[in-house]
């Protein structure tokens, strides 16, 4: 088919207009290394900073008591000392499990430790596990995220990371969106009543207003799956750990600022 010369002319004109006119400002911030706090309304930001009124304090109080509680076996304090001594460690999850090739995040590690100290059947979203996670993340505030391949096990770690990156860019659900479409390409834009953040996992665990309680990064990721109307992965699914690894590596070097409040 012969190209339509008039059509080409219109296109050239449009291009010229775009080049000569002022370039429209990018709707998203240049800096995508932003914490979720940068997108929080002032009222919630104030609540988050107010130790006496923030609901997170309820979990922190519980966690501090649990840290030194030795009623069912050795306490966390017995092995680890004060929570502050684990701040570097808290910033380095998810990691490969000691045995095998699977990834574990900080809450998985707390569940494993809980079994060791006589608190059996603990699950990642239990109040006690969340309380300990909140205490560790509070101790690690300001610590830069530092998730690296373990020496000697680079190959399986890299496989998890690649799979996570693939999940981040794969369309899913009836809405048919990938993470990248919102959290890379439309950061700072309005999505209904909320502003899209770059999705940096610095502030977890979070007290999300709609949950009315504290929750982990895994729960937030499952909420994203639900948001795009995709099939929900099971709790603790390897896919979620791989995605978490990718998000943490993507945010490497950013300071942790959790636990925090989200809408």
């Amino acid at each position: 088919m012969r190209p339509n010369p008039r059509g080409i002319g219109i296109r050239l004109g449009l291009l010229a207009a775009l080049l000569c006119g002022a370039a429209p400002a990018a709707p998203w911030p240049d800096n995508t290394k932003l914490s979720g706090n940068a997108f929080l309304p002032p009222g919630l930001l104030k609540l988050q900073g107010d130790v006496n009124n923030s609901p997170i304090t309820l979990w922190l109080d519980k966690g501090r008591a649990l840290w030194t509680d030795s009623s069912t076996g050795p306490s966390c304090q017995n092995c680890h000392g004060p929570a502050e001594s684990l701040k570097k460690s808290a910033a380095s999850f998810p990691r490969l499990a000691a045995k095998g090739q699977s990834l574990i995040d900080l809450e998985d590690q707390i569940v494993t430790c809980s079994a060791r100290t006589g608190r059996l059947n603990a699950r990642a979203e239990d109040d006690e596990v969340l309380a300990l996670s909140a205490v560790l993340h509070e101790a690690a505030r300001g610590q830069p995220i530092d998730v690296q391949a373990p020496p000697g096990q680079a190959a399986p770690w890299q496989a998890h990371l690649s799979h996570g990156a693939q999940l981040f860019t794969t369309r899913r659900g009836r809405i048919n969106l990938a993470c990248v479409h919102c959290h890379e390409q439309n950061v700072g834009r309005q999505m209904r009543a909320d502003v899209v953040s770059p999705g940096n996992p610095t502030g977890f665990p979070i007290y999300r207003m709609s949950w009315q309680r504290l929750g982990t990064l895994e729960r937030r990721l499952r909420a994203c799956y639900s948001g795009v109307q995709a099939v929900l992965p099971a709790v603790g699914a390897p896919d979620l750990r791989d995605l978490e690894l990718y998000l943490k590596v993507r945010a490497n070097g950013m300071p942790l600022d959790g636990p925090s409040i989200r809408r």
Binding site: N52, N53, P55, T57, L58, W59, K62, Q212
Partner: peptide, 9 residues
């Protein structure tokens, strides 16, 4: 005075 309680309601 401010009172907060961790109740599931």
């Amino acid at each position: 005075a401010r009172w907060i309680v961790g109740h599931p309601m």
